[in-house]
Computed example of a mutant assay.
Amino acid sequence: MTASPATTPQAVTAPVRVWDLPTRLFHWGLLAAVVALFVTGKVGGNAMDWHLRLGLATGALVAFRLVWGLVGGRWSRFASFVRGPLTVWRYLRGQWPAQAGHNPLGAWSVLALLTVLALQVATGLVADDEIATVGPLNALVPEDWASWGTRWHKGTGQTLLLALVGLHVVAIVLHRLVKRHDLVRPMLTGDQTLPAGTPASRDNALSRLAALALLGLCAGGAVWVARLGG
């Protein structure tokens, strides 16, 4: 016998805090920094001074996210969303249920993006465009390292970064149009509609103060690195 619509149990959902405030601010701050880096890099000239500053800021943000991925809110931790290749394959075949935060494929795209950004920052620190801009750590590395770093930073690394950002945007659009999943709103509000009982991320005043202190340490580290070449 088939249950009538009036007696069919409905899944109970509720807004759940998935993205804590530090993660959201990191996300939008990193987006702004990457766009500004691309613009200043293309403009060149005096804008390269800002390009260097933005590169250091990006390095601080990446370092913050790597640490926050270990100690941050539940769904910001890598342990909560990074899965192995088999799980990614199951997700691609539609055999993985919807979950809070990043899906298995999206998790690996996040790691790829952080890795490429870290390489871009590192190579920018040692690069020399042989015109007017020299990375602050250029004099501290062998010439062949600096040469390779410059080629990577201006060529392969930039191409990979743009490709990953493009894929990220395409994935957001496809989720919205095909799966009817809005990935932007949760990154603005912090909340995602999920089955009732889904555990929420920690996002209280103490956690936010800890994140601010961590960001301060990362920023201080970036300034220290920049001064090594001085």
Rank of each mutant, 00 (worst) to 15 (best):
S4K: 13
P5I: 12
P15V: 12
P15N: 13
V16P: 00
R17E: 04
D20M: 05
D20E: 09
T23D: 06
L25M: 11
H27K: 14
H27Y: 15
W28Q: 05
W28A: 07
L31W: 09
A32V: 14
A33T: 08
A33I: 06
V34R: 01
V34E: 03
L37H: 00
V39S: 11
K42G: 10
L52P: 00
R53E: 03
G55M: 03
L56K: 08
T58Q: 01
A60S: 14
L61C: 09
L61T: 03
L61R: 00
R65Q: 08
L66T: 03
V67M: 09
W68L: 06
W68I: 06
R77T: 07
F78V: 03
F78M: 06
A79H: 15
A79L: 10
V82G: 02
V82T: 04
R83K: 15
G84R: 09
L92F: 10
Q95N: 11
A98Y: 08
Q99C: 11
H102G: 03
N103K: 03
N103E: 04
P104C: 07
A107D: 03
W108R: 03
V110G: 01
L111A: 09
A112D: 04
L113C: 05
L114N: 04
V116G: 00
V116A: 02
L119R: 06
V126W: 00
A127D: 03
E130M: 14
T133H: 09
L140G: 12
L140D: 14
P142C: 12
S147N: 11
G149V: 02
R151C: 08
W152R: 03
L161A: 08
V165A: 10
I172V: 15
H175N: 15
H175D: 13
V178Y: 09
R180S: 10
L183C: 07
L183I: 10
Q192E: 14
Q192A: 10
L194I: 07
T198R: 03
P199W: 07
P199G: 07
A200I: 07
S201I: 01
D203T: 07
S207P: 05
A213K: 13
A213T: 15
L215P: 00
L215R: 02
L215Q: 01
G220E: 11
G221H: 05
V225P: 01
G230R: 10
